[in-house]
Write a protein that binds this DNA or RNA. Sequence first.
RNA 1: GGCUCUAUCGUCUAAUGGUUAGGACACGGCCUUCUCAAGGCUGGAAUCGGGGUUCGACUCCCCGUAGAGUCACCA
Length: 452
Amino acid sequence: MEKDDKVITRFAPSPTGYFHAGTYRTALFSCIFARQNEGKFILRIEDTDKERSKKEYEENIMESLEWLGLKYDAFYRQSDRTEIYKKYIQKLIDSGHAYISKETVVATSTAGQTQPREEVIRFKNPKTKVTFNDLIRGKVEFDTTELGDFVIAKSMDEPVFHLVVVVDDMEMGITHVIRGEDHISNTPRQMLIYEALGATPPRYAHIPLLLGKDRSKLSKRKGAVPMTEYRRKGYLPKAIVNYLALLGWHPTDDKEFFTFDELVKSFSLDRVQKGGAIFDDEKLAWYNRHYILKLTDQEFLESASPFIPEWLSSGSDMNKRLVPILKEKITSFGDIANLLNVSGELGFIKEIPSYPKEMLLWKKDPDFISARTHLTKSLETIKTISNKSFTADAIKVALWSYAETSGKGNVFWPLRVALTGQEKSPDPFVCGFLLGREETIIRLENAISKLS
RNA sequence: GGCUCUAUCGUCUAAUGGUUAGGACACGGCCUUCUCAAGGCUGGAAUCGGGGUUCGACUCCCCGUAGAGUCACCA
């Protein structure tokens, strides 16, 4: 590449399935590379296959890119460019590099495949060896003889993949083609077309594939999770960006948290891995937890609001009180609903589940009498706190010395169960705070009466 | 099967001829603790095999083996 050439990269998905992690990472690397070279990043929808392309998928791609914050500088759709391709097909025919081929159509009806035409346009294969220097893999060599005269168009108005890719990359001035490794065997064919057109091919960088648990390519067909699904589950875009960038690329040190801008600074193609990487949901979850924990309460509320159940969101300042608790309990915002469900860990807020009185006994050690004594004492103490100053801290301070002398477990366990009716919950002070003074007192009285 | 690519803990990866082979996720233990989380500390866990090259190979070369990708009038 010449020094004064501006870097132009592109992301060229076909709208034939939902946008998933593998597709996204390719787009991400392309975009980052363009940004760090102060170049341009182009989005091009490759919808020449009319049967398989769906508007729904195109919309899914656009929605995902926007959600994940990937910005492009130009947009093209191949179905809008038929005339351009036609010109090039004609040019190739005129120069003897392509020809109209009469096909012997065998009447086989392969499922899912379109009916063969009687006439297609084929590229005249010069049967040479092509070599290119992949930016990630180094020298790659192919003998194109075995490729035969491949089809570049079904008709003058229906160009096919190899032709449109080359024409577009040429016309759009693409300098670096960054795409999945599954395209590596397409490269020689495309280079042949460049040569026939008298043009210089771009630089190629074939990035390793994202793999499923079974080590096979993450694909639309094999049920790769659409990115919009992560949006629905309440994942943070920055967690996804961070995780996916580190899948197949590694910085020079052990830094593991990157914003998009930091990636632009640190990324380099020659530190991209050669082998495929398994997509690990658990590590993504860990990144998401990390970023959720780092959110301010305000930010948390903003992101979480679509996920907070109605009975809560309509209510006062409960949300704010809940934020710190929610933050440390959830992996994604989608967990909030389950947590606040009647059967969830925080379900006691809405309604206390019925519980056996035995549950009030801590490790079955003390008897009902002592549990009752401690609950009564706790109730008395809590009643001394005014409604206005009824905070978790205030409750804790008020009860602490008594609990220390009587055994914290003896006091806090029955108190917590009285408030929540659950084996697991946040600590009793927070629970009291969440419930409010009035409800706290009611639940304590109920528990005490159970033990009478 | 042909062609192409790849090969370090279970997973993601660091170490581009000299390290006790490092980090992260996950897992185990301990601490903290009324429970559950979170947090802190800590442990186990890897260079696919065989030949070379070299004083010395995770690292370079060759041969195997394994895995993946691709072999459409899909992209």
